[in-house]
């Protein structure tokens, strides 16, 4: 499902040039540590998220609305890192806005997961930017459009599970 969503949104490519993002997007803040350039394109995802923008429901601070819809995010379990390391607010802004937050508090869009995740997963970020990690939405001959971190990983439970292979043993046995 995630792949289908990601694949459908290839059309919306944004270019992370030095001058900033595409029209309508706030310019990307640059810092001395921002040394891993993203691929020319990253598959957009925010427009296809079910519960976005957050501000559709979150019109008041979390503390004020918690008794109203307590089950809204019950499907979400944080299986990413120990609670002492990560809580919801590590990535989600509070008060809730239409974006995520970097560790230092700076806002970051849902389509820029590589910047957020790269804060801890620097090696994966480097591999992804170069082409050794993750998948691309385009063929080898086209300009490179990479699928962002959350195109494959569920950020709340990023590991890939154990399951049966796609085929049975007989079929895979070969001639």
């Amino acid at each position: 499902m995630r792949f289908a969503l990601a694949g459908a949104s290839v059309v919306s490519i944004f270019v992370l040039a030095a001058c900033g993002g595409s029209p309508g997007r706030p310019p990307r803040p640059m810092s001395a540590l921002d040394i891993v350039p993203a691929p020319p394109g990253v598959v957009e995802r925010a427009a296809f998220m079910e519960k976005a923008p957050c501000t559709r429901c979150h019109t008041v601070p979390l503390a004020a609305m918690s008794p109203v819809h307590p089950a809204a995010h019950w499907g979400v379990a944080q299986r990413h890192a120990p609670n002492e390391t990560m809580q919801c607010q590590t990535c989600h802004a509070d008060p809730v806005r239409g974006e995520l937050r970097m560790l230092g508090g700076a806002p970051v869009g849902f389509d820029e997961s590589h910047r957020l995740c790269g804060q801890c997963h620097a090696r994966q970020q480097k591999d992804w930017a170069g082409g050794a990690h993750g998948k691309r939405a385009t063929g080898w001959a086209s300009a490179r459009v990479a699928i962002g971190c959350t195109g494959c990983h569920n950020p709340h439970s990023p590991g890939f599970g154990r399951r049966l292979p796609a085929m049975t043993r007989k079929e895979a046995a070969g001639e």
């Binding site: 154990r162 399951r163 049966l164 292979p165 049975t168 043993r169 895979a172 046995a173 070969g174």
Partner: peptide, 8 residues
């Protein structure tokens, strides 16, 4: 190369 159990 003929495994048939949950992977990995």
């Amino acid at each position: 190369d003929t495994f048939d159990h949950p992977v990995p």
